[in-house]
């Protein structure tokens, strides 16, 4: 049984077909990599799945329910967590408070006006931070964090709502290679423990081939391959559009923020 089934998904911006008839599924507990060169439409897919964008066409079945066009807060409530390519945290809050905010929302306490937020769900917040190795930074302002730490904070925030599916858009962007592998290893361990399915994008092929259960490849908005590491590696189209330019592209990416 798949957690997420995307069918014939499409989205255009002006004349650009960012996503063009894409279909794939994410199985229960699966660790699925969505890869493709810059501009392939990966983030746009994520944005449609988590409700930030309304698809032009197609269905998005989450746990058997069509969530296409649903506001992202409702999608989240159904159990879809998300981290962003350009990390988004609440800069004026401490690291612990960022997680607490997610816990507060998850508990349906957003509109409470009396007991201080900083005292709610504090233990749980610290426990989550400890799991991602951020307990020391708990009282720092989240805007002061180094890039890698922001990504880990985002991960903790995403875990706070006990999602069934986690969408992670370039969780390791801007990190050094070793740090990347460590973070993905951590993510994999924590989601496997919890039985969370993950759809993630990642530019390091080493990381993808080492950790992903399955790989979906996008290029120019179209799905060009879907399978395990070996079959994707062997796929001719992939080799042409992706690995043909892979190295140069890798280096370009590194310079971008």
């Amino acid at each position: 049984m798949s957690v997420l089934a995307v069918a014939d998904l499409a989205k255009s911006f002006g004349g650009v077909r960012a996503v063009d008839g894409v279909s794939f599924t994410v199985g229960e507990g699966e660790f699925l990599a969505l890869i493709g060169p810059n501009g392939a439409g990966k983030s746009t897919c994520f944005n449609m799945i988590n409700g930030q964008l309304r698809p032009d066409a197609g269905r998005i079945l989450f746990a058997g329910r069509d969530i296409a066009g649903m506001p992202s807060r409702d999608v989240w409530r159904l159990g879809v967590g998300r981290t962003f390519q350009i990390a988004a945290t609440f800069g004026s809050m401490t690291v612990a408070e960022n997680v607490q905010m997610a816990l507060i929302s998850h508990a349906g306490e957003t509109f409470r006006g009396w007991r201080p937020a900083a005292r709610r769900h504090r233990a749980r917040s610290l426990a989550l931070l400890a799991e991602v190795g951020m307990q020391e930074a708990a009282e720092r302002a989240s805007r002061e964090l180094a890039y890698g730490d922001v990504k880990r904070l985002e991960f903790a925030v995403a875990l706070a709502s006990e999602p069934r599916l986690l969408l992670m858009d370039e969780p390791t962007a801007g990190m050094a290679p070793r740090e990347r592998t460590e973070l993905i290893a951590l993510v994999k361990r924590l989601v496997v423990e919890r039985g969370i399915s993950v759809l993630f994008t990642e530019h390091s092929m080493d990381v993808v081939f080492a950790f992903a259960d399955r790989i979906v490849v996008l290029a120019r908005g179209r799905l060009i391959a879907d399978g395990d590491a070996a079959s994707v590696r062997a796929n001719e189209t992939v080799q042409q559009v992706y690995f043909g330019t892979g190295r140069a592209f890798e280096r370009r990416r590194e310079r971008a923020p």
């Binding site: 988590n50 930030q52 506001p71 992202s72 807060r73 989240w76 409530r77 998300r82 962003f84 988004a88 945290t89 609440f90 800069g91 004026s92 809050m93 905010m101 997610a102 929302s105 998850h106 957003t110 925030v157 706070a160 709502s161």
Partner: peptide, 15 residues
């Protein structure tokens, strides 16, 4: 404040 700091993140955690 969450909605002010990052509307995207706020909506993505159900606010």
């Amino acid at each position: 404040r969450a909605g002010r700091d990052s509307p995207l993140r706020a909506e993505a955690i159900g606010i």
